[in-house]
C-alpha cells in the first residue's frame, strides 16, 4: 500500500506540507481541504513527482527515494494520477489514442488495447482519433481515466476529478469511478474540497488545513460528527437542497498563523488562550484522530446537537 510517513514538503524555504502521515486503504481515502491547504502538493509527492524535505513516501513498505529502476517501474504501474480536465491533463496537440498509448506496456495490438480502454470508461473507440478540444468536458475526463488505466494500476490519485464538470456529467463520472472500483479492485485517493464526493467514494478521510492533517477517520464520522471546528466549518458551509442556508464563520480568509499555537486559531470560533500558546497534536478522540485542544467538548456537544 501507498503511504506518507511524516512527510514535510517545502518550496524553497516555505514549508507547505508539515509532518503528514497518511495511509492508503482499500475502501478509498479522501483528502479534504481548501485551496492552498497543501493537498495537491502532498498528492504530487505521493506520485513521486516531487521529493519530501523530510519523511518518506513508501510503497509496499519500500521508500520511494531508495527504489531501484525496476522497483520504481513497478510503483509507476501501481499508482496513477487522474488530473482534472481543466488542468490541460491531455496534450492538446495529441490525438486521444496517442495520449493513451503512452501508458501501454505490451506493444501487441495497440489499437485494440486503446479501443478496449475507451470502451471500459464508456467512450466510443472512434474517439481515439480526435484531439482533446473536439471532446466535451465529460468525454475528456473519461479519456484521462482511460489513460491512467492503461498501466493497470491498483491505486488512482484523483485530483478534483469532477470540479470542472456539469453536475449531471459529474454524476456519471462518479458512477463510472464506483463501477471501476468494483470491477478492477481499484482504490482511490480522492483530493477534493467537495465533502459530498468524499462521502460517496471514500471510507476514510483526512482533513488538511495549512499543510497539516487536523482530523482523520471514517468519512461518515467526520461528516456527521466532526470534532475539529474546521471540519465542522467545511461541512456547514456546503449548501444543501432544502437544507438550512450555508453557515459562514465570517473569518474564512484570515491567514493561518504558523509560528505558535494552533494554525486554525484565527478562524476558530472556539479558540481559547491555550490554542494561541500550544499547537495541538493529533490524538485519538471519539473514534478518529483530531488535532484540537477542545475535541472532547466538540464531540460531546455534537452528540446532543447535530448542527454544532
Amino acid at each position: 500500500m501507498l503511504e506518507a510517513r511524516g512527510v514535510t514538503i517545502a518550496y524553497g524555504k516555505t514549508p507547505v506540507v508539515h509532518d503528514v502521515t497518511l495511509t492508503m486503504e482499500p475502501g478509498g481515502v479522501g483528502l479534504i481541504g481548501e485551496s492552498g491547504s497543501g493537498k495537491t502538493t502532498l498528492a504530487r509527492a505521493l506520485l513521486g513527482l516531487l521529493t519530501p524535505v523530510s519523511g518518506a513516501i513508501a510503497y509496499g513498505s519500500r521508500d520511494l527515494a531508495a527504489m531501484d529502476r525496476a522497483e520504481r517501474a513497478r510503483f509507476r504501474d501501481a499508482v496513477q494520477p487522474v488530473f482534472q480536465d481543466g488542468s490541460e491533463a491531455l496534450d492538446p496537440r495529441m490525438r486521444i489514442g496517442q495520449s493513451i498509448a503512452e501508458g501501454l506496456r505490451a506493444r501487441t495490438e495497440p489499437g485494440k488495447q486503446i479501443a478496449d480502454l475507451l470502451t471500459s470508461v464508456g467512450l466510443d473507440p472512434a474517439l481515439a482519433d480526435r484531439r482533446p478540444h473536439q471532446l466535451s468536458g465529460g468525454q475528456r475526463q473519461r479519456a484521462i481515466i482511460a489513460r491512467a488505466l492503461a498501466v493497470r494500476p491498483g491505486t488512482l490519485i484523483l485530483d478534483e476529478p469532477t470540479s470542472a464538470l456539469d453536475v449531471t456529467v459529474q454524476a456519471r463520472i462518479l458512477e463510472l469511478l464506483e463501477h471501476l472500483a468494483d470491477e478492477r479492485g481499484l482504490s482511490y485517493l480522492l483530493i477534493t474540497h467537495n465533502l459530498a464526493l468524499v462521502h460517496r467514494l471514500c471510507r476514510t478521510s483526512y482533513v488538511m488545513f495549512a499543510g497539516r492533517i487536523v482530523e482523520s477517520g471514517p468519512s461518515r464520522t467526520l461528516l456527521t460528527r466532526p470534532a475539529h471546528p474546521y471540519t465542522a466549518a467545511l461541512r456547514d458551509a456546503v449548501p444543501r437542497i432544502g437544507g438550512p442556508p450555508p453557515r459562514a464563520t465570517g473569518r474564512a480568509e484570515a491567514a493561518p498563523r504558523i509560528s505558535t499555537g494552533c494554525p486554525y486559531q484565527r478562524r476558530c470560533p472556539l479558540a481559547v488562550d491555550r490554542c494561541r500558546a500550544e499547537r495541538p497534536e493529533l490524538r485519538e478522540v471519539a473514534g478518529r484522530m483530531v488535532a484540537c485542544h477542545r475535541a472532547e467538548e466538540t464531540t460531546q456537544v455534537s452528540e446532543d446537537q447535530p448542527s454544532a
Partner: peptide, 13 residues
C-alpha cells in the same frame, strides 16, 4: 508544469 507532462512522467515516459 501542465497536467499532461506530469501524467507522462507518471506513466514512465
Amino acid at each position: 508544469r501542465r497536467g499532461y507532462v506530469d501524467a507522462a512522467r507518471c506513466l514512465g515516459v
